[in-house]
Lab assay of single mutants.
Amino acid sequence: DHIPWITAVLPTVIICVMVFCLILWKW
């Protein structure tokens, strides 16, 4: 059976995008 890697990667991607947007917003 396949491991849904997207389910494991998606939260990390969302957190990175939120942090990236927060850094851009504070500049």
Rank of each mutant, 00 (worst) to 15 (best):
W27F: 10
C16G: 03
M18S: 14
K26D: 00
P11G: 12
P11M: 13
I3L: 15
V19N: 00
V17N: 08
H2Y: 13
W27Q: 06
L24D: 07
P4Y: 14
V19R: 00
C21L: 08
W5I: 06
P11Q: 05
I23Q: 07
V19T: 14
I3S: 10
I3A: 09
F20K: 04
V17G: 12
H2I: 12
V17H: 03
V13Y: 02
C21E: 02
I15N: 01
A8T: 11
L22M: 01
D1H: 04
L22F: 14
A8H: 05
A8K: 01
F20E: 00
T7A: 13
I14L: 08
A8Q: 07
I23E: 01
T7K: 04
P4A: 10
K26G: 04
I6N: 14
W5S: 03
T7Y: 10
A8N: 03
I23M: 03
W5Q: 02
W5T: 06
C16E: 01
W25P: 04
V9P: 06
V9R: 02
I23H: 10
L10D: 01
K26T: 10
I23K: 07
V19I: 08
C16V: 06
C21F: 11
I15C: 02
L24C: 07
W5E: 11
L22I: 13
H2M: 14
I23D: 00
F20L: 12
K26V: 14
V13S: 06
V9Q: 06
M18N: 09
V13W: 14
I6Q: 15
W27H: 04
I14R: 00
D1G: 13
C21Q: 09
W27R: 05
D1A: 11
W25R: 10
T12N: 12
T7N: 06
V9Y: 02
V13N: 07
C16D: 00
K26M: 15
K26H: 05
C16R: 00
W25F: 14
I6H: 09
M18H: 12
W5G: 06
H2K: 12
L10G: 10
W25G: 10
I15P: 04
W27E: 03
I23L: 15
I6G: 01
V17A: 07
I14C: 11
H2G: 08
D1N: 11
L10C: 13
I15A: 03
I23G: 11
L22R: 07
T7R: 06
L10K: 03
W27S: 09
I3Q: 12
D1W: 04
V17Q: 05
P4D: 05
C21I: 11
T12A: 06
W27K: 04
V13T: 15
I6F: 02
I15L: 07
I15H: 00
V13A: 04
C21P: 10
W5P: 11
C16W: 04
I3D: 02
V13Q: 03
V13L: 14
L24F: 01
C16L: 06
I14W: 11
W25V: 07
V17S: 11
P11L: 14
D1V: 07
H2S: 12
I23Y: 13
V13D: 00
I6L: 14
W25T: 07
T12W: 15
V19G: 04
T12L: 14
L22N: 02
P11W: 04
T7F: 04
P11S: 11
C16A: 10
V13G: 03
H2N: 13
L10H: 07
L22V: 11
L24M: 15
H2A: 10
P11T: 14
I3M: 04
W27N: 08
P4G: 10
D1Y: 09
T7I: 06
D1I: 08
L24P: 08
C21K: 02
I3H: 08
L24R: 13
M18G: 05
V9A: 05
L24Y: 02
C16S: 12
T12E: 08
D1R: 11
L24V: 14
V9E: 04
F20V: 13
K26C: 11
W27A: 12
C16Q: 09
T12I: 05
L24T: 09
P4Q: 09
I6P: 13
P4F: 15
C21W: 15
K26E: 09
L22E: 01
L22H: 07
F20D: 00
T7E: 03
K26R: 12
I6S: 05
V17M: 08
V9D: 01
I23V: 07
L24G: 06
H2V: 15
V9T: 08
W25M: 03
M18K: 04
L24K: 13
P11C: 00
V19D: 01
D1P: 06
V9I: 15
P4S: 10
P11F: 15
P4H: 03
V9S: 12
I14F: 05
D1L: 12
C21S: 12
D1F: 05
C21T: 07
H2W: 09
L10N: 02
W5A: 04
D1E: 08
W25I: 13
I15S: 11
F20N: 00
L24S: 07
V19M: 15
V13C: 06
W5L: 12
T12F: 12
F20P: 11
V9W: 15
C16K: 05
I3G: 11
C21D: 01
F20T: 13
W27V: 02
V17L: 08
A8Y: 04
V9N: 03
A8M: 08
I15V: 04
V19Y: 11
A8I: 03
I14A: 12
K26S: 12
V13I: 04
T12S: 08
I6C: 14
K26I: 13
W27G: 03
P4E: 02
L22P: 09
P4C: 15
A8G: 07
W5D: 03
V13H: 02
L22Y: 10
K26L: 09
F20A: 06
M18I: 09
